[in-house]
Write a protein that binds this DNA or RNA. Structure first.
Length: 605
DNA sequence: ATAGGGTTAG
């Protein structure tokens, strides 16, 4: 009866029945114990579990019966008590492969990967042969430790032992390879599999995401949907992450539809992924809609919503949620601080940001990381308080290249060539091939007209074979991605685009637009500079979208791989007035929502 | 004749 309850996941009833045995004077035996122990770990009943362990000791079953021993090890592992689990293993007289595997699995699931390897070693030393279960679990640790050597060794074992077609070990292999960054090997493992199951497909999709292969991940997702395997929460959150990273709104909405059809929308992992996705696509309203539809308010959901607000120009909403956390009974964590600091950064709330930053040192369970320092440096830097930014970096222990580069970008923004020179030397010392820093310096000198220094930096880049990534904008229309690069007159439809730009130029000039030639960082005369601004990639993308979607009222979304330039920013604001449409631009760091001549960033970015 | 232990995903 107890075993039936366990098999049907009815642990409370199993425990109740077990307790009734004692009352009625029936003594449990090895079958009873090996079965019921699972219920204790399932319900987190540490005391009852230990009492049952005591009973096993009294009956002599702890050492003599490997079934009871394994069940005890599993129980302690699931309760997070690996010390007790290992002690039981050592006491069992006739150890077998399941006993050791349970121990290995326990260490793996408690994140103690090195201990898992040691347990495996102990097993081999005691002459117990591993089987596919053991390999399957051990491979997880190989992946976590990025120990591809051992992983490949186990791959060999698996082939030798004839488990080549077992789905679980193959899935673990696949995961191991993708965690070790060997995503092509992961794909190879997958191609050889005859019957991939749900876990296999999901592992593959997630593995591809972790290696920056979003497009392949999505095509595998479609392939899976066409096969007879039904996706679950794990799969769907993976598919959403792919769309988030690519910021492909339409595709993500399709995924959202599938989620609704499958009834998975109330799951909190899915919820968080949806909020994040809509946030990263610039749709705060939709993110909020998902958020409001979820009953459980856990920390991750609130953090995600806060981040969605912070990157979309609703900084006060982020701070509002931060205030509310206390009332919701939630303790902020390190991720909360990132969102709050980003909000302060985008809103220019320097002192507020510093006050909160300092207050987080008071929380004992939060680790202040370099990422937080980088946010704070950016807050000072963008506000022009460069001295304080530098002081803060010196306060961090072991400041890394990211912190210095952040300060350097502030120097560039505020034209502080003196400080930039000093920081530049530090950066070169730390990491001489940091492309970002070199580009920043080159642009700063160019903006000051110091062409000798520009040549200096550029030749340094050439020596190191570094190339500035060219500015690019793209739009997605009807599921197709259209990419634009500045000044490219030879692209398809250039005539139509040019025509629209000229028309727009005339109208925005009437509204007071003056080409801001100081944003052109090439050594050209005024006329040439103006022409160069004319064909910036964001302008081409917007003109193209207007041409392709003329007559429609929906907003235009453009994406950029760099920050929007100051001239284009002013230009786009006026264009929204001229055409009466909303334009949303995503750059590397945040969104700009342009509407009726103003931008959500309030011109601070 | 009837009962018991361990795998893979965010």
């Amino acid at each position: 009866m107890i075993s039936c309850y366990i098999r049907q996941n009815r642990s409370p009833e199993a425990v109740a029945l077990y307790k009734r045995m004692a009352v009625e004077g029936v003594c449990p035996d090895d079958f009873t114990l090996s079965c019921v122990l699972k219920a204790f770990s399932d319900l987190g009943l540490v005391c009852d579990g230990k009492k049952a362990h005591g009973k096993a000791v009294v009956l002599g079953l702890e050492v003599s019966n490997v079934f009871v021993g394994s069940a005890l090890v599993d129980m302690y592992a699931k309760l997070g008590q690996m010390r007790n689990a290992h002690l039981v293993v050592d006491r069992v007289v006739e150890k077998d492969v399941i006993l050791f595997t349970t121990l290995v699995v326990g260490y793996v699931q408690n994140g103690e990967d090195c201990e898992a390897m040691k347990a495996f070693n102990q097993m081999i030393k005691e002459g117990v042969k591993a089987n596919e279960y053991t390999f399957t679990s051990l491979l997880v640790s190989c992946g976590n430790l990025k120990h591809s050597c051992l992983g490949m060794l186990i791959h060999g074992f698996i082939i030798k032992c004839g488990h080549e077609f077992g789905v679980s070990p193959q899935t673990s292999l696949l995961t191991m390879y993708s965690k070790c960054g060997m995503v092509d090997d992961a794909l190879k493992v997958f191609e050889h599999l005859v019957n991939p199951n749900l876990v296999t497909w999901t592992s593959l999709i997630v593995g591809l995401l972790q290696n920056g292969r979003e497009e392949v991940a999505l095509s595998k997702f479609c392939q899976m949907m066409r096969s007879s395997v039904l996706p679950n929460c794990f799969t769907m959150s993976g598919a959403l992450v792919a769309c988030s990273n690519l910021a492909t709104l339409d595709q993500g909405k399709q995924i959202h539809t599938i989620i609704l059809k499958l009834g998975l929308h109330l799951n909190k992992f899915i919820g968080a992924a949806l909020i994040d996705f809509y946030g990263r696509c610039g749709c705060v309203e939709l993110a909020k809609l998902v958020y409001d539809g979820l009953f459980a308010r856990d920390l991750v959901l609130v953090n995600t919503m806060m981040y969605a607000y912070a990157q979309n120009g609703f900084e006060h909403k982020t701070l509002e949620l931060f205030q509310q956390m206390n009332d919701l009974g939630l303790e902020p964590n390190d991720v909360t601080l990132v969102s709050v600091l980003l909000a302060c950064d985008n809103a220019g709330l320097v002192d507020e940001g510093r006050r909160i930053f300092d207050s987080f040192f008071g929380y004992r369970n939060i680790r202040i990381t370099k990422e937080h320092y980088a946010c704070m440096v950016d807050i000072y830097g963008r506000a022009g308080r460069l001295q304080e930014a530098e002081a803060l970096i010196n306060q961090a222990d072991n400041p890394d290249i990211v912190l210095w580069r952040t300060l350097l970008s502030a120097c560039r923004l505020h034209g502080d060539i003196t400080m930039a020179g000093r920081i530049f030397n530090k950066v070169i010392e730390l990491s001489p091939k940091d492309e970002g820093s070199l580009v920043l310096s080159s642009n700063l000198y160019a903006s000051k007209g110091d062409w000798n220094q520009v040549i200096c930096v550029k030749s340094l880049m050439r020596e190191n074979r570094l190339k500035k990534s060219p500015a690019m904008s793209w739009v997605i229309i009807g599921g197709e991605v259209h990419t634009f690069m500045a000044g490219n007159c030879s692209q398809p439809n250039f005539k139509e685009i040019d025509c629209i730009i000229k028309e727009l130029m005339k109208k925005v000039k009437e509204l007071g637009y003056v080409p801001a030639t100081e944003f052109v960082l090439q050594n050209l005369n005024e006329k040439e500079k103006e022409r160069s601004l004319y064909y910036h990639s964001e302008k081409l993308a917007i003109a193209f979208s207007l041409w392709k979607t003329s007559g429609k009222t929906s907003c235009i979304r453009i994406y950029k791989n760099l920050k929007v330039c100051g001239d284009c920013h002013a230009w786009i604001k006026l264009v929204t007035k001229v055409v009466g449409r909303e334009i949303i631009a995503r750059d590397t760091k945040r969104f700009h929502h342009f509407k009726d001549g103003v931008c959500s960033c309030k011109d601070y970015w």
